[in-house]
């Protein structure tokens, strides 16, 4: 009963919305708002394996490369900056400024500096999404528990053990928060960089469909982009639950007292 109820609650609204879209758009004659059935048919026709290999995989590869670059760079820099008061004071206003620049406007600049190749896109994705990771790591490292720091000092736990078990693990909830924000930004920058300068990729393909008035294909591209966003977010949440099990457990425990 409860399982049934929960399933109904979880699926009820999405099913209803899709159904409404289906019925409302059925037999649509509006060139720009095709019927959902047309869009779905176009989806199957458009996103064939060849197309996936030509456009989707390059996009995802650039996204992964840029994001991983930002993740490693942001965490490494964040630990360095967060661990030292003076470095932090020195860099804080600068980082606040760099973070505030809307990442997509850097696309033209990066094109000037390093051309229109994959390297540019990877760099611009990394540069665009590194800030939330970096700033959250700084905050996380800075906000580590003093008693835990003292514990490390008295038991003479230093070097790699301290880096991993004190600094990084303390900061990990914040790092994850930053990484989540960064993933959303990385996806945006990926699409934008491909819309502005590319000859393949999802952003490029979708804009081509729009310019060529292949409207159902364009809609299917929008759907695919949305789907990728959703899958990435879900994948992220799965990874987060695994990595931060201790964190949620501790918080749930505290609430009970």
């Amino acid at each position: 009963m409860t399982l049934l109820r929960r399933t109904l609650l979880a699926l009820g609204l999405p099913v209803l919305l899709v159904a409404v879209w289906w019925w409302a758009s059925a037999g649509s004659t509006d060139f720009y708002r095709p019927a959902l059935s047309t869009i779905l048919a176009a989806f199957a026709d458009t996103w064939t394996w060849d197309r996936v290999r030509a456009d989707v995989l390059p996009s995802l590869a650039r996204l992964a490369a840029g994001y991983l670059l930002a993740l490693t760079g942001g965490v490494a820099l964040g630990v360095l900056i967060g661990g030292n008061r003076h470095v932090r004071a020195f860099l804080e206003p600068l980082l606040e400024f760099l973070r505030a620049i809307p990442p997509p406007v850097l696309v033209p600049v990066f094109i000037l500096l390093s051309g229109v190749g994959d390297r540019t896109k990877v760099l611009v994705i990394a540069f665009g999404c590194v800030w939330p990771i970096l700033l959250n790591t700084v905050e996380g490292v800075r906000g580590r528990d003093e008693v835990l720091s003292d514990t490390c000092r008295t038991y003479r736990i230093g070097g790699g053990l301290r880096l991993w078990h004190l600094l990084l693990r303390s900061a990990s909830p914040r790092i994850v928060t930053g990484a989540r924000q960064a993933l959303a930004i990385a996806l945006i920058v990926m699409v934008i960089s491909e819309m502005i300068a590319a000859d393949n990729g999802l952003g490029f393909a979708v804009l081509q469909f729009q310019r060529g008035f292949q409207i159902p294909a364009m809609w299917s591209g929008v759907l695919l982009l949305g789907l990728i966003g959703v899958l990435l977010a879900w994948g992220f949440r799965w990874a987060e639950r695994r990595m931060l099990g201790w964190y949620y457990g501790q918080r749930a425990g505290r609430r009970e007292w």
Binding site: L9, A10, L11, G12, L13, P14, L17, A184, L187, I188, V191, I192, M195, G203, V206, L207, F209, Q210, M218, W219, G221, V222, L225, G226, G229, V230, L232, A233, W234
Partner: peptide, 20 residues
Amino acid sequence: ATATTVEFLRPIPSVALIPL
């Protein structure tokens, strides 16, 4: 009733809507 819908719509990157 809205939890799954929010979880689904939220991560859709808004730039996907640009051509639309």
